[in-house]
Design a protein around this nucleic acid. Structure first.
Lengths: 133, 133
DNA sequence: TGCTAATATTCAAACATTGACATATATATT
DNA sequence: AATATATATGTCAATGTTTGAATATTAGCA
């Protein structure tokens, strides 16, 4: 099996773990400091069972590491850099696809069409209806 | 609504788009050069309908941009840096959770337990059964 | 023009799968 | 026993993938 397949499989799993808002938040909260399950639960405003489950997710993928201290279990990031890596992802969000993006596309198509210089048949109005929700 | 919630929502959506191996591969393939749907379909060895749908996904999130050229539709990355960002994610994968990670955890727990110096009751063997699949 | 072939997208059905949450129970530590 | 955390279970909905057919879009050509 080609390495590309293997690697994208692994990557997609990583992304999958982070595809839940709560889990993203956990990572971001842990960026600042170690936190116990209870502390997290309070921050996230969810049940402690739910918190444990999400943590279990992150743990099984090596994102976080547990560290029991008496009755409490502290969690921290196995690789703290992941927090910054995640926020770097913000670069690739928005700006609001449906608005700007179709415009960009339209412009590109237009430039291309104008460029090849053939018959032009009312492109603008039709194109606008293609907007996705 | 606190900004943290909003941001992690957005981020989790981004991650969600990339949580499928095919979509990750598409991004990586597009790192090298623009590709048509047919080319992608051949590379990925899936139907063209499937390819279109995955592209539609990526498009609607502003990851890729279409660019029609005659009968073909070329796709490229809206922000080419995303390809590198994704491969950076490899840093946070493995090395094989179940093996190493439980070991690390065990060591940490042990260090802590040894540190606080109380009764030790055969920690290693028990801990090993905690391995996840 | 109008027809056909090539390319790409969409639709809808079928489908599996997942996965999140709550509740309850279990484990560990003091 | 009490606190803190983990897991197990059931349920529920939502989600997402695939396939095949129908529909656009464009090029080339008669």
């Amino acid at each position: 099996m080609p390495y590309r397949v293997v690697v994208s499989n692994e990557l997609s799993k990583l992304f999958n773990v982070l595809s839940h808002p709560i889990r993203v938040r956990i990572v971001e909260e842990l960026k600042a400091r170690e936190l116990t399950v209870t502390e997290l639960k309070d921050i996230l405003e969810i049940s402690s069972a739910a918190t444990s489950q999400q943590l279990s997710h992150l743990r099984s993928h090596g994102i976080v590491v547990e560290n029991r201290q008496g009755r409490n279990v502290f969690y921290h990031l196995r690789k703290p850099e992941i927090a910054d890596w995640i926020t770097d992802g913000l670069k690739f969000i928005g700006p609001d696809q449906s608005e700007v993006e179709t415009m960009v596309t339209a412009i590109e198509s237009a430039r291309n069409a104008w460029g090849t210089a053939s018959k032009q048949k009312e492109p603008p109005a039709k194109k606008a209806s293609k907007r996705r929700t």
